[in-house]
Amino acid sequence: MKKTKGFTFRTIFPPPPKPSLTRPCPFKAYSLIPVSPLAMLDPTILTIGGIVLGIAIIERILERWGVIDLVDQFAKVMRFILPVTFYSALIYFFVTFML
């Protein structure tokens, strides 16, 4: 009859790693700004802002050239478009912003 040899658990599996002597101290970090300013670099918001800024610059150039009739038309249109653009971009930002 053959003799069977027994193995202990420690010889088959390596021992678990020992914990390090230095332990990281847990700390709580608080942010005073709930929304990152870098989130405003969304291409859609930058495009809308660039279009509105371009229209305002065109309006100033036309005013310097003395085309007051066209400037009045721009002012009437911008009086409606600017608030609508601002609120729609604000709603878009908060809808697409991920917390």
Rank of each mutant, 00 (worst) to 15 (best):
E59S: 14
M98Q: 13
P14M: 05
T22E: 04
G54A: 11
G66C: 10
W65N: 08
R60P: 15
F7M: 09
K3T: 15
L53Q: 12
V35H: 05
S88M: 04
T85M: 00
V95D: 09
Y92W: 08
R23K: 14
C25H: 07
L82C: 12
F9I: 08
F27Y: 01
G49K: 00
I68W: 02
P83A: 11
L41D: 07
P24D: 15
G66S: 07
F94K: 14
F94I: 15
I45E: 04
I33S: 12
T11G: 10
T8C: 07
Y30C: 06
I12H: 02
P26I: 12
I61W: 06
F93A: 06
G54F: 04
A39S: 11
G6R: 05
I61Q: 09
S20I: 11
K2F: 14
E63T: 14
A29V: 13
S31G: 07
Q73R: 14
Y30E: 11
L41H: 08
L99D: 15
T4L: 05
V52H: 01
C25G: 00
M40Q: 09
D72W: 08
I33P: 07
Y30G: 05
Y87M: 08
P43E: 02
G6F: 08
P37E: 06
A75D: 10
P14G: 12
I68G: 02
V71M: 03
V84I: 15
S31I: 10
A75T: 15
T85V: 07
C25W: 05
